[in-house]
Each structure stands twice: as structure tokens, then as C-alpha cells.
Design a protein around this nucleic acid. Sequence first.
DNA 1: CCCGAAGTGTGCACTTAGTGCCTTATCGTA
DNA 2: TACGATAAGGCACTAAGTGCACACTTCGGG
Lengths: 269, 269
Amino acid sequence: MDDGRDRMPARRDVRRELMSAAISLSLTTGFDETTVDEIARAAGVARRTFFRHFRTKEDAIFPDHDECLERVVAFLDAASPLRPPLLVIAEAAGIVLDMYVEDPDTAVKRYELTRRVPALREREIAATSRYQRAFTRYLGGRSDEATGDGAAGEAAPAGAKEPPVGPEVGPGVGGEAARLRHEVAAAAVVAAHNHVLRSWLRGGGRGDPRARLTSAMDEVTRALQPWADGRDASGDAHSDEVVVLVTTRRAPLWKIAEEIRNATGEPPS
Amino acid sequence: MDDGRDRMPARRDVRRELMSAAISLSLTTGFDETTVDEIARAAGVARRTFFRHFRTKEDAIFPDHDECLERVVAFLDAASPLRPPLLVIAEAAGIVLDMYVEDPDTAVKRYELTRRVPALREREIAATSRYQRAFTRYLGGRSDEATGDGAAGEAAPAGAKEPPVGPEVGPGVGGEAARLRHEVAAAAVVAAHNHVLRSWLRGGGRGDPRARLTSAMDEVTRALQPWADGRDASGDAHSDEVVVLVTTRRAPLWKIAEEIRNATGEPPS
DNA sequence: CCCGAAGTGTGCACTTAGTGCCTTATCGTA
DNA sequence: TACGATAAGGCACTAAGTGCACACTTCGGG
């Protein structure tokens, strides 16, 4: 659009301009047909600058997933080990949903794009699989290895050898069988989240899908109840942590609750 | 390796040679560091020939997923509507596992690659998500749209308008709630499959993981039982199909079973 | 007031994935 | 032996992504 003026104000948020340029151009012209040159020119910057902000062209469409994943991981790390794990990851899924709800217009546009551009679809699937992996990890299993998306370094730490696969600790005490449950539970929560999200997006991003998410999560939790019930007996996340609280008999309940919250690392917000 | 000779025998299976060249070169040199030129030269063909066989460099690493997905879809299409749907998709997952088990060495090499090359990991995640979508579709919901991976043509057929989202057929008769269950069930089955598969791959691809798959599927099915129980009352896959079988009172049970199998289009194999 | 340091934007050259178009070789078949 | 189909090769081209050097702005400190 406008070529060279207004370079003084709003010097920040070149990212944002690049993102919206990428989305709108891709919506009109098609993603593959839109070159990085055109996107950069539309945002009023040079081609090289585009690649300073985004590693690939696909990244420009989903600039928020990285930060959102960090928020989710932080939330999981800070969650109290006393709370039911399924509930915690359900709430974590809510964080992801919130990211979409924050900007419904962009979310719907992105959805339109992902529906017809295979490369973007794969990109988004990969993003959701990272959330799923974070959930699995939180539930106690390291699903296969690295934390993040694996910057290609990170060889498996020698010496930390997997226990022999055959004779497990016991039949369902917390080894192989527990991991299976963790992965399935994480997948179920992610699937429920995706269902609610896509249903909302198909509807044009109107209304608030948060209620639908919680009800979907309720249903999933109910189905996975038998597994969750066995979690205290089997090896669960944080099962080796102990909380010791010293207080006085005169302390009110809310004070005790607060102490527990502090001790278990829940965020003070 | 050998440069120009032996162009007469084994003229077929250039694909196979390209694939193994791509895998072994990527394992030694690294995937990103290996150029298509090198792969083609190692397989004794020209660069252009590589792209005749594979659309992208990543495709050369996973040449079987397309065909396997077709087999899975064919299996699902041919499955008798009288059988429990969860069992059917569990068996379909077995087809996928079989593909890996067929060639354990290659499978383990591929796993090694996917562990350290993000691009390949995304590729495989996308592949499994296609299976998941096929499962969801079979269970009755079309999760969001197209059948295959969408060759970028395929605009939404005008006129086939979605029914209004708000007033569904009824509260849980087979609309929104049923779709949620379908997606979660598909995700759970895929997660269980992936768990067994990765566990087997981590163990070096030794032994037969089929038994572990069925036991994992048993567990998943057990957890999803309450959902599956309601399937007859709600709108299930094939619920609008009717099978009429005329036979004689003297017919043995196995004969009747065979007739049903034929009538419902199960493969005769 | 001047001077580095750090961050951000630019230009340029380069590698490589992927495509389109046309030519060539090979093979089965009439 | 000729012919048509299919696989392969050659060649030129577009565009993504990278490395490098350079310019400009903004601080903060002497």
C-alpha cells in the first residue's frame, strides 16, 4: 500500500503488520501464490526484514503459538500437585482456547486459511501436538523425549537408560500402563479442545466457547474417570512429592489454603 | 555408490532405492544437510527423477503412508456396520502398526530420524492425524471437511450448506455431543497406537508389538465403554443402513455369518 | 557532547527445493 | 519394424531461506 511515509510512529509491531499482511494476502491471492516479497512490501518493509521476524512463511500465519505454549507449560509447572491432573490440563486447554477467543476475527481468517492450505494445516496440527505433548509430560510420562520442539541438538543423555521393557515393575503399578493412560488422556483433552474450537470457528467465531469447553471437558473427564480413580494408587505425576504444613490450630481455613498454595508453587495472581 | 553400471536389472524400485538412499544419507550427514542432488546421485538417477517419485524431500522418508491410509480407509469402508465401531477402528490401527512391523529396520531408522529432525516429526504427526481423521469420519462425524489431505483444489461444494449450529436435532441425540465423542475416541485410539508403536521403536523394533496393541486397545475401549454403550441409541455410523438377509432355518451359524459379511461388503480375504 | 553497544532494518549474493517444458530412452505390442 | 506409452533426463526458472556486511536509531556512560 502506502510506500514510504509514516516511518516515525508505531515503529514497533512490524511483526503484527507482517502477520496481518500475510493473512489477508493469502486469503485473497492464495498462500502458495503469495510471495514473501509481496507480504513484506505490503507491510512496508524489505524482504530480508520478514525473515528477521519469522523463520518461515508459515510462521507468519501463526505467530502466537510459541508464546502460548510457553504460557501453558508455565501454568502446568506452577500447578498445585494437589489438584486433579485431568482438571489441570483441562484448564491448560482453556488457556489455548483463550488465545483464539482473544481475537476472533483473526482466528476465523486463520481457520479459513488452514482449511484450504495443506501446509498450514500441517503446521497447526504440529502446534496442537506440542500442547498434547506438554500435557502428557505433565501427567508424568515423558512421551518420547525433549521438552520443546527439539532444536535438533539434545541427544539422549547417555547413562539415563530406559529400564528393560519386558519385566515391568508390576502390572499397572505406574510404568508402561500408566504412560499409556497419560498419553490417551492428553490426546482426549486435546481432541475435545479442538472439537470445541473448530465448532466455534465454523460458527464464525461468535459467542463465547468457554462454557462449551468446560462441559466438553466434563464429559471427557467422566469417561476417563476409572483411570483417574486409580491414579492415587498408581504412579502419578508428583506422586513422590510430599507436602508438610505446619500451622496452628487457630488458623482459619482460608489461611491454610493459602499456605498450601504457596508451598506447592501455585502462582500468586 | 556405484556410478553408472547395472542399469538393466531391477529397473523398477527406483522409489525404494531413493528412499533408502535418503534415509541412510540423512542418518549419517543429517537431513537438512543432505541435498536432493546427493540422494539422487546415490540412487543412480538424476535429480529430476527424484521429484518424479516424491513431491518433497520429506516424502522420500515416508513413502508408505499414502498407501497405508488408503488401505485403512478401504478397510473402514468395507467393515460390517454390525460390528462395534471402536473395535473396527482398533483393528484399523493394527493395519498401520503392521506397516511398521513389516520392515523393522527401516522403521527404527525412520524413528531415529524423526526424533531429531523437526521437519520430519511434523510430517509424521501430520500423517497420524490423517489416520485420526479417517477414524473420526468412520465413527460418523466428518470432523471438518475433505476426505483426503485436500489437494488444494476442492472448494466447498456450493449448495451443501451446513445446518444451523444452534438448534441441533436434540440434546445428545447424535449431533454435537456425538461428534465430540467420535473425535475423542479416534484421538484415544490413535494415541494408544502411537504409544505402543513408539515403545516398540524405542526398544529397537524387536519382538511383535501386536499383542501389546490389542491389550492397549482393550484398555482404551474399556475406558470409552460408557460412550460406546450409548451408540445404539444415538446417531451412529451406518445407523441408517439396513441389512436384510434371507436364509433357511437349517443354515448353520457360520454360513449366516458369511452371508452377512458378504451383504455388508466385508472383503472376502 | 561524543562514543561505543545493542537492536533493528536493508541490500546482496548464494544455495537449494520444487516446477514446467521439452527431449530421449526403454519396453510392450501390433 | 514401427508405434505409442511410460519412465527418465536435461534445462531453465521461481521462490524460500541464509550468511554477511552495512546503515541507522536509541541508549547509557564517561
